[in-house]
């Protein structure tokens, strides 16, 4: 176990080099967020006779988008998939096959360290932004809900990581994986709830999406925080999310085993 602490330690130092890049990314990321908030404000202003649009008040809707930004900072896979694919393509994973180190755990450590540094860098601009929007920012209904939100966010991070890891392993068979990554990302973007909360969709469509893992990659923890999922529905959701985490983990392991058999160690 100790060797992985070393990995985390080194990864933290390595990622700290990129903190200015992270800061830029976090600040630029606020521009589309602000644009979306303005769009929704205009929607609410165009319906002054209604307190709720699509089951959301202006405050809940604003909070939804602010929280997606926070959860995204904590859980989104940034460079990891490109790096894994490059490791495979350039034959750099050969060394991991010889060392007593597990590549998936190694990558998970790097991912965790990267997210930690990113979150710490993004914290200042994002918190300032939330402070500016505080009139429309809701706090969680109670402490227990917040605890469940954190638990669900951790599972979201794992789910995101295992999915991206599996996608990156396609590099065992393909030279160029970026288009596939972007196609998957597009589905995640809409079905995960980045673009809009999923419960403003027609109910039938929302139910279909709920059968996929995408909502559990972002939408679920945010709706837990906002208190929109409660009681037995909450526990059911958590169980499904845990199920998806497990399934994506098993898939990642399985694809790795298949890939290694196919691996030709080009350039390594």
């Amino acid at each position: 176990m100790r060797k992985y602490w070393h990995v985390i330690h080194i990864a933290l130092q390595n990622t700290l080099v990129y903190r200015v890049n992270f800061l830029f990314r976090a600040v630029f990321g606020l521009v589309p967020l602000m644009a979306t908030i303005y769009l929704w404000r205009a929607v609410f202003a165009s319906n002054p006779d209604r307190a709720e649009v699509a089951g959301y008040t202006l405050a809940t809707m604003t909070s939804y988008y602010l929280l997606t930004t926070v959860v995204d900072a904590l859980t989104a896979v940034a460079e990891d998939d490109w790096q894994i694919a490059a490791d495979i393509r350039d034959g750099r994973i050969s060394q991991f096959l010889l060392k007593p180190i597990d590549y998936l755990t190694y990558r998970l450590c790097l991912f965790g360290a990267g997210r930690l540094v990113y979150t710490l860098t993004a914290a200042l601009p994002v918190l300032l932004f939330i402070l500016l929007q505080r009139r429309h920012f809701l706090l969680p209904p109670d402490g227990a809900t917040f605890g469940v939100f954190l638990l669900s966010t951790v599972m979201t991070a794992l789910l995101q990581f295992f999915t991206s890891y599996t996608m990156a392993l396609l590099a065992f068979w393909l030279l160029e994986i970026s288009t596939f990554v972007f196609i998957l990302f597009a589905f995640e973007y809409v079905a995960g709830g980045h673009l809009f909360p999923l419960d403003i969709l027609p109910p039938a469509l929302a139910r279909v999406l709920d059968l996929t893992p995408f909502p559990y990659q972002l939408y679920f923890p945010v709706s837990v925080y906002l208190g929109r999922v409660t009681g037995p529905e909450l526990w059911r959701g958590l169980a499904i999310q845990a199920g998806w985490v497990l399934a994506s983990y098993v898939l990642a392991r399985w694809v790795w085993r298949r890939g290694i058999r196919h691996y030709a160690a080009v350039g390594g």
């Binding site: 769009l39 205009a42 929607v43 202003a45 165009s46 649009v53 699509a54 403003i200 027609p202």
Partner: peptide
């Protein structure tokens, strides 16, 4: 689906 207009 939820509004007629966005700022006219």
């Amino acid at each position: 689906q939820h509004t007629e207009r966005i700022a006219t």
